[in-house]
Design a protein around this nucleic acid. Sequence first.
DNA 1: GCGCGATCGTTTGATATCCAACGATTGTAT
DNA 2: ATACAATCGTTGGATATCAAACGATCGCGC
Lengths: 155, 155
Amino acid sequence: MAGQKKERSGTERVKYGPLAQWIGFNLRMAQESGFQAFSHLSKEIGETPGRFATLTLIGRNPGISQTVLSRASGRDKSSLTPVLEDLVRRGLVARKRTDHDRRTYRLSLTADGKQALARLNRCAKRHERNLDRIIGARDRAKFLQILKKIAAEIG
Amino acid sequence: MAGQKKERSGTERVKYGPLAQWIGFNLRMAQESGFQAFSHLSKEIGETPGRFATLTLIGRNPGISQTVLSRASGRDKSSLTPVLEDLVRRGLVARKRTDHDRRTYRLSLTADGKQALARLNRCAKRHERNLDRIIGARDRAKFLQILKKIAAEIG
DNA sequence: GCGCGATCGTTTGATATCCAACGATTGTAT
DNA sequence: ATACAATCGTTGGATATCAAACGATCGCGC
């Protein structure tokens, strides 16, 4: 059994082929890793990354409608229905119907919502510091600019 | 009704606040956009981006097991169960049990699988050209390196 | 006024993903 | 030899997402 090496955890030599050079694949891997890392950090608070973006956007844009919110956060409006249902039920978000247009809701944060957001922001700061350490201060701005460019122009 | 402007599609002025500067959020937006764009391109072939990575990795590593494959593609092994079931059913992937270890499967591409992969590769090349155009040739290598660094080091 | 197309949020159905637990199998320590 | 821990792929339960279709409501043209 000369070179018959046993596969030990993490020792697998997997060939990625063209995948290694593809932006799309590496974008997914990086995003997923970051998502998991933040989930871990914010787990103690009991909130997920998606809800965090939702709360931030509502906090910054009181009175925003669900449709506008969905576009801003890059998700389909139907994805927000259960999320907002839950946030309203738990008293973090207030949802008021407007009288001049009874189709739309006006979303805003409650006091509890603002407090939860503040806690999440502290988590996010830690997370971003980790990312900054990995990316390096010198390349951060450029990297961010490219990410935005991709999101804006690929459609 | 002086400044009462009507909200027209795409005219919404949403304030992103700190979100605009956060790597995590912009990573998600970019990844999702890219994912959608590639889905669109590869829709005619009837394959999704996730399956594409799966096929590539199997093609490059014939005999790979599901667990190793799942780690290489950054997904939980249980996510692969239905995917492989489908790929095997459609005759793109062959799954053989080994005799020296009857727990694991050895995965490989069939002729049809190789052909489907070739078609997908042509799609992916188009997609990557679009991304290259957005990123710019000068920054591409650096950008890719940072993505890999994030995936590798954030855990 | 009135009707028709557009928009809002929801519902429904499909995928993709995670995690924890499981049965079968293997390796190892004693 | 035998028992115990580790590993493989699957199952079950939960969440997140999209896309298409729907009822309610609005706005505009006439």
